[in-house]
Structures are given as C-alpha cells and as structure tokens.
Design a protein around this nucleic acid. Sequence first.
DNA 1: TTGAAAGCGATACCAG
DNA 2: CTGGTATCGCTTTCAA
Lengths: 347, 347
Amino acid sequence: MPYVMVQIPKTPAPAFPAPTVPTSADVARLAGVSRATVSYVLNNTGTVRISEATRHRVREAARELGYVPHAAARSLRAGHSRIVLMPAPSFPAGPLFTGFLAELQRALGRLEYTVVQYGAVGLSGDDAVRAWAELRPVAVLVPGTDLTPQGVDLLKRSGARAVVTVGSGPVDGAHALLLDHGTIGRRAGRHLYERGRRRIGVVVPADPGLRVFSEPRLEGVRRAVRGTAATVTELPLAYDEEAAARLAARWELLGLDAVFTYNDEYAMLLMRALQDEGVDVPGHTALIGADDLMLGRLLRPRLSTVRLELPSGRDLAALVERAVHDPGAPPERHTALGATVVHRESS
Amino acid sequence: MPYVMVQIPKTPAPAFPAPTVPTSADVARLAGVSRATVSYVLNNTGTVRISEATRHRVREAARELGYVPHAAARSLRAGHSRIVLMPAPSFPAGPLFTGFLAELQRALGRLEYTVVQYGAVGLSGDDAVRAWAELRPVAVLVPGTDLTPQGVDLLKRSGARAVVTVGSGPVDGAHALLLDHGTIGRRAGRHLYERGRRRIGVVVPADPGLRVFSEPRLEGVRRAVRGTAATVTELPLAYDEEAAARLAARWELLGLDAVFTYNDEYAMLLMRALQDEGVDVPGHTALIGADDLMLGRLLRPRLSTVRLELPSGRDLAALVERAVHDPGAPPERHTALGATVVHRESS
DNA sequence: TTGAAAGCGATACCAG
DNA sequence: CTGGTATCGCTTTCAA
C-alpha cells in the first residue's frame, strides 16, 4: 500500500486571529499567582491552605479566560487515565444489545469513567489491540471474540487494569461476561419438544457477523433433542422479505412442524411469510423467537420467545470498578443465567 | 454559577505492582540509541536518514518490549488530537439513528479519527460542554438541542475546529445537519388529507426525550391542513401495550378517521390495539407511520410510512473532514431532504 | 501561604 | 547519520 500523506491546507489568516487556548499558566498570570497555586485552587487540593482571597482571584481569572484543563496533560502527569475503551462490535447490534450498551455507558459515566468507542476499521486482531493500547485505557471491554491471550497481555502491559470480554470468550487473563447462547437454544428446543414437535427447523441468519451467536443457539437446540427421535434442520435466512418468502414457499417440502427463529425480529419476518403462504401458526408449525422484544407481543399470534436475563449495565460497570481497584484478582467469569421461555400463542 | 472542577479520585496502589509500561526511552536503551532516533525510526520520518542497521535494531527492541506509543503524550506534544467527540444522545435512539451512528463511526474511523462517546451524566448545558472540552477534541458532534452559542464558542476556544449539531439546531457558529421533522409531518398530513381524511390524530410519544422530534412532526401536520376544514388532534401515548389499548378503547369517542403515529414502531403498537378493538384499518381509520422500518412492511395491512432520506454517515464524516481542514469557512447547514410518502395499504 | 522546578512521554530542532 | 535538548500542560514535592 502506498504511503500517502495528507496535506493539511493552511487556513487563511482569519480576520480575528484564532484565540490561543488558555492554559493554567495564563490563569496564573492573570491572577498574579504561580501555576502551582492555580492547580491547588482549581483541584481543591486539601493538603495546602490557600487564602480565600487568592482562591477567588484564581477562579475569577479561570472563568474570564474560559480556561478548561487539558485532560491528556493531566493524565500524562498522573500516570493513568479514566478511559474505558470499547471497540465497536463486529456484529449488527440489535435493540437488546444497544440498550445494554447505553445503560452501561451511563453507569460508567456515573463512576467518572470516560467511555471511548473505537471503530477499528481495517485493523485485525493484534493490530487493533495495539491501536487500543495507545490510548492507555484503564479498562477495555471487548464485545465478540477477536481477542487472543497475547492481546490481553499486551493491553495489561500497557496499563489496562481490567480487560473484559462481553458476550463471548472466555479468554485467558480476561474477565468474561458470557451470554449463554447455547442455553437459549436449549430452552427453545426443549420447549418445542415438550409441546410435541419432532421436526424442528432453526433459522440461522445469513449475516456472518451474527454467527458467533447463531451457532451456539443452533447447537443448543441440537443438544436439547439429542437422544430423541426429533430432527433439527438448519435454515439459513437473510434479513429481507424475499428470502423469507422463498423459504416459506418450500415449507411443505421441508416437512417441519416447528421452528426456532434465532430472535424475535427473524420470527416476525418468517411468521409473516409463513402466514402469507397459508401455513397455520402454531397449528401446523409452532414458532418461537428469542430476546422478548416489544414487537413479539404485538404479533398475532403473540410470539413465544426465550427471554435472556441480561446483566444490567450497572453490574458490568461495577465489575469494571472492582477489577480496576484490584487488578491482581483472578478473572471473574459471569454467565448471564435465567434464559426462560415466555410461552405465548405462537407455539 | 461557581466554577467547579471535578476531582479525579485516586486509585489505591495495586497489590501486585503492574509491570512497568515500556516507553520510547526503554526502547532507546535496549537498542543502544537515543530517544530521538527511536522516534525517527518508528514514525518513518522522511527528513532524516537512518542506517538500515539502526532501524532494524530499533524495531527489534520495540517488538521485544511490546512498546506501544502513548497517544496522550503524542497529542500533547503535537498540540492537537484526532478525537471526534460525540456526547450520547439525550433521546432513546431508534434503529434508524443507531444505524446512522454506526455508519458514521466507521466512516470517521476510516479517516483516522478516534470517536469518543461521552456519556454526560448529571452534567447539564455548559458544564457538560466544559467536560467535553477537557478532551481537546478536534471536532464535536452534538445530537439534540442542548448547545448554546456560548457552548460552541467555548469548544472552539479550546481547540475544536468543527462543531456540528445533528438532528436539530441550528446554533450560531456551528455546522448543522438538520433532520427536517416538520416536513415529515407535512408529508404525512398532506397524504392523509389527499386521501380524503379530515379528522386527523397525531400520536405524540410520552417520552420527554422525544419531544424535540415529535413536536415539529405534529406542527408539520398542523401546517399541512392549515386553511382547510380538517382538524388535528394530539394523542399522547406511552410505548406500551396498556397505554395503546386505553387509547384504542376510546377511539370511537375521538371520532378520528386518520392517524399519523410519529413513527413505525408506534404505528405497530397502535394499529394492533385498534385492530383488537375492531377498528378497521384503513377502512375506518387510515394510518401512516414514519422511518420506513422493516417491520412496517411486515404488518398486515402493510404500513404506509414517510421515509426520510438520511444523509449517509460518510457524508457527515466528509463534512467533519472539510470543517477540520478549513475551520474558517462559514458554517454549513445541511437539511436532510427527500421526505417521501411510501404508500402501502394502511392509508 | 506561595513559588520554583522536576518530570510524565513523545517529537523536532539544531549541533555535531 | 545521530544525540542532546526544549517543549507541550499539568501536578506535586520541596523550599522559602
């Protein structure tokens, strides 16, 4: 790849020259004190006593200049940051995961961490890890699988006090928050089996990014009916109407009497296509989704689903806090338990 | 308002002292050269010529130590960062906006920007702005309204070369990417009117965070039928089944013959409730949503909707790049045009 | 109670 | 070709 350097065009001298960013030295000058004093006052340092008059002068000067401290300089001096780095997930995030992330972010914010989302483009594996390490995050939360023990080690050696994999793993040396997709599949499979179904289809999204989730879910269904006469059929499906219609068109040929649709969105997609094809749900084919989204309750028949008790964002934030305080502790491994079938009308 | 600076809590010394993070000085020592030489080699500085032997020794030493440069130190020295700061939106992001953000993030990543999502908790207005400014971002993308001209000024004075409001505004001095919610409402209103409807309801989500969007949409409907005999009725609605059922129960009393549901998700919610109540859609009541989500196509009747042509994340990333290169340029104001009615079966 | 100065890690100028 | 050295903005010891 050729090395290209972007030329930054000089800005035409503005009519009013760009005001230079004020530093603590500027504040000190204006207040007629030293930079040390400025730092003491603005940080409310307890170990030194500064006269009220001086404090006031300093604060006034800071206000007047619009002084804002420089986070990078501060954390350089301090030797550590409060950055929690979260690489963007490699899979399309559904509403469930999106909500989880939002909550997590708020929780971390409340603990005074700064969340940095890193959109690692074109970097893979350990290259990406190096890019993350440049920011010297105090903690790293990695969604998905792309993390090796070497990666964990590099992060720790560059100062990360906590490395947590979210939704997969476990990886040596890292804490893990496991979303047990296998159990989701098992519950769905067991439910369908108990309702008397024996020829079970399992929708597997075509999106390759979702394979990390869909494969364990499929495997879970297989495990649920192992040793019985029931069969499990894999049904690849893209997330669009045409693909669903094609699948529904050959439904009779498939000879299935039940289907687990990966999640509620795919459930809606397939159920609609089946109904358009004249397939009775649940009479002919029982159908169950997962994730317990609002839309499932609105479908007719109301959608049966597997609800996963996600840990709250607060819980994960607490884990981060714990790990940061005590980096020596052995890796925790939390599994999101409580996958339960919500039986409604479609199964 | 008093000037307060947030104190960063100190973390206690770890039980096992972390292995010290290697610096360029360590690399220099191991390679038997000066720090300057290390910098030259690792950055491929073109202006100096270093012997191949030395280059190799330096690279080898860096690899051996697992050296990773310190981004904060680098940008402190450089005087600028590649940070694009994006405060977390104050409204619940739907699938449309979530997708837009993900795309934007990838696009910015491709331009070598680092996206920092800031979950501003408990901070409001200019306090939040000060917190953002501490990171010395080169650009700030603000979703929603909470930005004053003073805020923009503070950000610029602390080094931000581009400030862009997304989805609202405009704010003096900032670029704006406007999502024209008024037009969405107008299109919906006009469509219903042209289909012969005269008593139009407009769903307004109870979520206060959505008011920034829902109010202009409502106003747009009002504007569309201004000067005609048609009436517009505001229908507050929480996003849950019970609220929808209550609303549907008094549908006859409301005497409406059409409804614009804010978006497709609320459309699904309300349509289901109306159908359960025996209200024929579109026979008795015409219904139109917005955002053209996949789920709308799957409903029966298929949902009419207003599709908004969102600018791509790439476009916004390009705007950022332009603004960063030429901060002196006057603020651009882009309006997402192309709100078009997609007429399906529900209206 | 305040100030001078060292130093966090990386870079770029200027000598040699 | 390579090595000192000043510098970015801030915190914190040590002296005064």
